[in-house]
Computed example of a mutant assay.
Amino acid sequence: MTIVPTGTSGRPTTPPDQGVGPLLRAWREQRRVSQLELSLRAGSSARHISFVETGRSRPSEEMVLRLAEHLDVPVRERNALLLAAGYAPRYPETPLDDPAMAALREGMERLIQGYEPYPALVMNATYDVMAANRGIAMLLDGVPESLLVPPLNAMRLTLHPEGLAPRIQNLRAWRGHLLEQMERQVALHRSKPLRTLYEEVAGYPLPPGTPDAEPGEGPGAEASTYFALPMRIEHEGRVLSFISSVSTFNTPMDVTVSELAIETFLPADPATVKYLHSLIA
């Protein structure tokens, strides 16, 4: 599938009119870091950090970026901190369909196509699918057209009672894994759109007939067979098992790139490998 831009707003999710001090304090408290610990990490003093947070001292642009780095502030929100401190944003947000992104798009498409016949896709920060290979298209066989209207959303497709959910054999365990993953992302990014998506998909009812507990469900239940929790999904009368892996870009310098993730599904057993290769043979 071709890379599909989703038209992100380009606006920081943190309002800059709060002042940089309260914003930095909020991020520090979110990360559960003391002023002393942050000062040691950033090569400053607890007194200076306190002055910055209370507005008694205006941090330099370099100090804002240094504190943001040590607080693991997402790239989009680093721009918001700079704006609140009176500086210009440092990180551009280049649309994915911009000609400047051609090499990146081509590289991602080549990567996920080279992963075939195993499923792979590219997502943005709110799990909208930017690109997917034929392995993903195979899993989406039978999904209603109403759920396939662009932009596709990986969480909606997976957890909607008319999406993949009825075919996932260990739905309760896999659903719990996905919701926990989203909770961590919401806490990390403090993103309102991501929280809205989480509340939506967490509220989906389980498909009729979903058992209270799948056989062997529970902590450590998969350990005897798999090295990580698999997604076991039915496809044309067969149960396929996949282990999911998510990759992001190292030290991104663009907001768009910082929010991209490539998810690949590794076959978790020989039967799945054999079946997928039979489809291309």
Rank of each mutant, 00 (worst) to 15 (best):
V52M: 03
A103F: 10
Q113T: 14
Y91C: 04
P144Q: 13
N133F: 01
P92Q: 02
G135L: 02
L121I: 10
M138R: 14
P74Q: 07
G55D: 12
M123T: 13
T126W: 12
G107H: 08
R56F: 13
E145T: 11
L81F: 05
R110P: 03
L81I: 00
E53S: 08
D141A: 07
N124P: 01
M123R: 08
A132S: 05
M63Q: 11
L71G: 03
M123D: 02
F51R: 08
P95V: 09
G135N: 07
N124M: 07
G142V: 01
R66L: 14
V129C: 09
T54L: 07
V64Y: 12
L65S: 05
E116F: 09
R66T: 15
V122F: 05
R66V: 13
V129F: 07
Y118I: 05
E69F: 09
A125H: 09
M130P: 05
E69P: 00
D128G: 00
N79Q: 11
D98A: 14
N79K: 11
P92R: 01
A85Q: 00
L82M: 13
L104Y: 06
M101I: 03
L111A: 11
D141P: 00
N133A: 02
N124F: 07
I136D: 01
P89I: 05
L96R: 03
R66E: 13
L96H: 04
A102G: 09
A80M: 03
I136N: 03
E93R: 15
P117V: 04
